[in-house]
Amino acid sequence: MIHKEIVLGKIDTAEAIRYMGYREGSPDRQLLDIIVRCEKELLQVMAPRYCYKVFDIVRTEDSVKLKNSSLVLKGESIRTHLKDCEKAVIMCATLSGEVDKIIRLGSIRGMTNALVLDALANAAIEQVCDEVESIIMTEFQNYHHTWRFGVGYGDFPLSTQKLLLDTIDAGKRIGVCATDSSILTPGKSVTCVIGLSKQKQEEKKSCSNCDMKDRCSFRQKGATCS
């Protein structure tokens, strides 16, 4: 078993700058200075944590079940996502509540700070998820994996969040809970389902399977988000 600690050495600032709405062109020095300072602050306070469990998939007529758990994955989208998979990984990752705190602090000091910290944190949690994924895959080298399917994508109900967290004990293991509206807390946290299969899988999310495709600001300008 591997439980490797994840420590980010730096944040993908180019990605964060894109989240801030930049497409062509780059920020001026003023903003770059702020980004560098905020990156440093974030790296100092964030404590990335993750947990996951791997289940065998049990398919019934109209749902996908996970063996030894009471979790039922409902909806056509997750069903399609896992259609060739034998196993499903349920994972959760977080940057910790300290990150929420410095974003709150940032918004008191001036919204620029808050905006930059928020974008950087969004980039960082993606990096953490990438690392968790690669840690998981070292244990399943004979398998192909799907892209990370988030709770709430397509018709996979957001209300699954609470049971999903309970199934992998995320509250106890890494301190992630859901609110009554199924929002993850701490704020910079992610849950997702990764399918494992002996067959080759689509590893990247694309516009065709994205919920936001009709109102995506990248697509409106003829670009994509990745």
Partner: peptide, 11 residues
């Protein structure tokens, strides 16, 4: 624990 986070991180 209750299973939901308290303010300010939770609601």
């Amino acid at each position: 624990p209750i299973g939901q986070l308290l303010e300010p991180t939770g609601t």
